[in-house]
Amino acid sequence: MKKSAEKYHSEVLDEVFAEITPEEQRKADYRMQLAAKIFDAMKSKNISKLELARKMGKQASVITKWLSGTHNFTADTLFEIGGILGIQLLNIVREDMNPVVSHYHLMVSDSGDNQYIAVKKIENDGSQNQP
């Protein structure tokens, strides 16, 4: 079996990591994933960097920057790219609120002159409350 590379733990890198907040890292992750999503769509639609640049009225170097994972896109730019590539880069669909579901148990009693209707609310945990 061949020897694996030695593992090296860098204290210098540890110090840099300590300065990066989770939110900052998530922003970097998001920008690079966005670039990857754009590239994947270009590939699947067979659209080259030059072609996307022409359609967007930009220089090819601008597309290179977009794909580098360092660009902070505006909503308008993402909307335009999404339109050309046929992908959704901005998700503006409202997330559904958790629906409130209530169950009632309706009982109708008819014993001569004493007719009544009783309604019992059945809670989600299965217990029953008197209305």
């Binding site: 890198l13 840099v16 990591f17 300065e19 990066i20 900052e24 890292q25 970097a28 992750d29 690079m32 994933q33 990857a36 994972g69 360092t70």
Partner: peptide
Amino acid sequence: LDIVKRLKTINTIT
């Protein structure tokens, strides 16, 4: 910091 963040994304996600 930006370079190290990108290296981490490359390492973990992309």
